[in-house]
């Protein structure tokens, strides 16, 4: 269980003011839960991910993973970034095995594990390729395999499909569901796409900006439906899906400070 308890973050601006980026955010990520934080830019969703990853300390509050407080980055929390962060001088196989190399796993053992992971993300034929030879979607799949290699307790995904075209994006969503059902990993996923949040999350946190806070919580059934049926179109075109999507859309618009200030 990963618990975020009363997390607040304040940043200092250049001109000496303080800005609150996160306001007393609390939530849990249960075992094999898929939690999606949804909101417009500036709602603090990346801030909370950076805090869980250990890249950013909290001003107030605590984050605990299985009861132990989180301090600094570690291999128990795998991160997939929006911009791919593969090392251009390493092959795909060596990129995926990087965390294992850091953990001083022998090269032979690494190869076995890497092969298995590449098969999981459908890139078994690209072990010897270099990142610049792969498309954006393929690189993100490598990023997912790399993050899974060290057997983390949780996978943190910071808008991983944000830079992909919509067709690739849907394929990646479906791939992620199959990875989730096969590995049973906890996932914390960030997006600004309502549809993506509803399709992927077993728990969706709707966040609003200035300061970043949670304004709504939903437990959509759609991902489990898709995992069972395998028909993404049927799930996404179902009336319940559209209904919930419009409800969340209305909720996001109501808290849109830009519109409120302009009105």
């Amino acid at each position: 269980m990963l618990s975020v308890d009363q997390a607040s973050v304040y940043f200092a601006t250049r001109d000496g003011r303080t800005v609150q980026a996160l306001d007393r955010v609390s939530f849990d990520i249960p075992d094999s839960g898929f939690v999606v934080a949804l909101g417009a830019s500036g709602c603090g969703k990346s801030t909370i991910l950076n805090a869980i990853a250990g890249f950013l300390p909290l001003s107030e509050g605590t984050i605990t993973l299985n009861g132990r407080p989180v301090s600094g980055p570690g291999a128990d929390r795998g991160v997939v970034f929006q911009k791919d962060t593969l090392l251009p001088w390493k092959t795909i196989a060596d990129n995926v095995g990087l965390g294992l190399k850091f953990a001083r796993v022998s090269r032979l053992e690494r190869l076995d594990r890497v092969e298995e992971l590449l098969r999981l993300v459908g890139l078994a034929d690209f072990a010897a390729a270099y990142p610049y030879e792969l498309s954006g979607g393929m690189r993100q799949r490598v990023g997912i395999a790399r993050a899974l290699a060290t057997e983390p307790e949780i996978l943190l995904m910071d808008e991983p499909f944000g830079a992909l075209d919509s067709l690739t994006r849907e394929q990646m969503q479906e791939l992620l569901v199959s990875v989730w059902t096969r590995t049973g990993k906890r996932i914390f996923f960030i997006t600004h796409s309502i549809e993506e949040a509803l399709f992927l999350g077993t728990h969706v946190l709707v966040m609003s900006p200035r300061p970043g806070r949670i304004v709504g919580r939903f437990d959509p059934p759609f991902m489990r439906q898709f995992a069972k049926s395998g028909d993404a179109r049927a799930v996404k075109t179902a009336p319940e899906f559209a209904e919930l999507r419009e409800e969340i859309r209305a909720m996001l618009h109501a808290t849109d400070t830009v519109r409120r200030d302009a009105a």
Binding site: A53, G54, F55, P73, F81, K83, L98, F102, A147, T150
Partner: peptide, 17 residues
């Protein structure tokens, strides 16, 4: 890029690595 450092850190890299 800082992302590259952060990625390596969350993969468990020591300072020397």
């Amino acid at each position: 890029p800082i992302e590259r450092i952060n990625a390596a850190r969350s993969l468990g890299a020591s300072r020397f690595q």
